[in-house]
Design a binder for these strands. Structure first.
Lengths: 214, 214
DNA sequence: AATTACAAAGTGGTCTGACCACTCATAGTT
DNA sequence: AACTATGAGTGGTCAGACCACTTTGTAATT
């Protein structure tokens, strides 16, 4: 008979199978998962093992549980866990720097993609953003919109993820210089001037860093 | 008496208290945590509750457990969480194009970082690579080395992950033109010429794509 | 005295069964 | 028709029991 002496961690196996199950049954975001008891029976493990896997995914913000109702697939953007992680994990400045560097890489790539793709430049949204610059506005929203428009869904998701780990790298309020940098950046984005746009981006980043040092 | 049947999730509370405990007792990376049974008694909860919290932290790569030995504070720079989340994320966006775009973003950022950091340019490894170009060599190895030297461990981790999903984007054999492009790229890398290096990179990428189309 | 072999204690891994607290649908009552 | 009570289903927690594994101490052997 096959020994059940798994050197592997069972609960990790369950995590894996849960992922498979979610995929196979095509459970949508917000959809309901089978109950813990049913999962235990279907996967042929104890309920406590199932729970360990579920609790892990819950801490990651992948699922959401409501007592008396059930377990639901969550929109992982909502997780509150990340602030926990930042206090737990990202005390290391090396890691923080890595997160920022990687985010910047994704942001720049989005700008490049947009500049090099004619259809993406014609979006009238750039003008709208330039107009909105006068009001109070979240810089983060602009960045996000840029990445969204660049149409790299994977990059966007990774960026979201990192943003959550990075804490608050983007201040919401802008001073005059920052607004000016944004205006130029958006303007160059509109006409597809890659070199200039990247240059503007770097300038803006410099302004941001100075602002943080203050 | 104080009712502890709060609507709050107990296991989240335990996670919080574990963090406190690790801080208070100043447990170093690699250090040993109290046993599950001891934690259960100290925190006045059941062992299974403690386990749910511990399993969550384990999935996040914050702790490491070894059967028969104990639970240890892990080197969380391993970023296991990113790996996990990525496998979840990549289910619904397996667009190869997105994967490639994101990989290129990371590669370019590595090149930029190296160009802008003097210490990284002095590595004699570039000359070694230029020499090796004559022989049969894996382009993938050069790229990887570039990212490693750029010292962004998170980026490297993500890059590795994406490479797995991307299949085989980098052919191992190089023709004359590709070798020439690499030679220039490495040369510019050595002296920190960012603009030219990125330009070389783009040229090389173009050559790669043509080769694939053939 | 040194080495080996074995037993015991300690630890994480898993399962079972039992409650509790909560939500919801529904049968029953007014 | 509106309201109420009930029970089924679900997650939350606990206690106790094994198992598999590692470490450690001790007794037996050399």
């Amino acid at each position: 008979m096959i020994p059940n002496n798994n050197s592997r961690k069972m609960f990790l196996e369950i995590v894996k199978q849960l992922r498979q199950l979610i995929h196979d049954e095509n459970i949508p975001v917000g959809g309901k998962l089978p109950s813990e008891r049913e999962l235990a029976e279907r996967l042929q493990v104890g309920r406590s093992t199932v729970r360990e896997a579920l609790r892990s995914l819950e801490l990651l913000g992948i699922i959401e549980t409501r007592r008396g109702e059930g377990t639901f697939l969550s929109d992982f953007r909502k997780h509150q866990l990340v602030e926990l992680l930042s206090t737990f994990i990202l005390q290391d400045s090396r890691s923080k720097k890595d997160v920022h560097t990687t985010m910047h890489a994704l942001e720049k790539e989005a700008i490049r993609t947009i500049c090099l793709t004619e259809q993406l430049q014609k979006q009238s949204i750039w003008d709208a953003f330039i107009d909105k610059l006068q009001e109070e506005m979240f810089q983060e929203d602009i960045i996000r919109e840029i990445i969204i428009i660049s149409n790299n869904r994977l990059g966007l998701k990774i960026w979201f993820l990192l943003k959550q780990f990075a804490g608050e790298p983007y201040r919401s309020l802008m001073n005059v210089k920052e607004k000016e940098a944004w205006k130029m950046l958006l303007g160059n984005l509109k006409v597809g001037n890659e070199q200039q746009a990247i240059s503007n981006y770097n300038e803006w980043k410099l302004l941001m860093n100075r602002g943080e040092i203050k």
